[in-house]
Amino acid sequence: MHKGKDAALVNDCKRGDRRAMAQLVSRYERPVFNAAYRILGNVDDAADITQTVFLKVFEHIADYDPKFRFFSWIYRIAINESLNQVKKRCRQEPLAASQASPWRSPEEHLESNRLSNRVQGALMELNEEYRAVVVLKHMSGCSYQQISEILQIPEKTVKSRLYSARQLMKKSLRATDS
């Protein structure tokens, strides 16, 4: 995480520097997209959420509190937006979150038998709180302390959710194996 550089770019953004904005987008587009994808399980939704996240970040850049690290802030927005989208989906459609959209892309169809897709399936069976912790730890590479800062929960709770999530994923993958 480029803490010092991020802070300088954020200050430039606050002065209206669009090149600084573009650099931040370049730096965080892929990580934000991947976090959203792993929570939502859908490329189109992840792309929409990524756009929303950056729109919100730069709309409120003047409110950004430099006592928090920038990556914590952007990840928090990304996780919250993704989880809100998951909740919205659940309210509108009383189906398991792991049910595939009937309009999967050809790439998503091809992936259907790969291990990564089985793992993604097991991930989608977790509740949102567990899923967020797994995504931040394993896909975004965050430490317990960073996850605690992003989700604003104690480190002890991060560990507890992560360990429980791993147990549930092990059971789910064992079930699909058999």
């Binding site: 953004c13 669009r18 904005m21 987008v25 997209f33 756009q51 729109l55 409120h60």
Partner: peptide
């Protein structure tokens, strides 16, 4: 890692407004 769609970066850049 999932690669974001090609259009995404330009979409973000073209739509973001910096509030100064």
């Amino acid at each position: 890692e999932k690669v974001p769609p090609e259009y995404l970066y330009d979409a973000i850049i073209s739509q973001v407004r910096l509030s100064v």
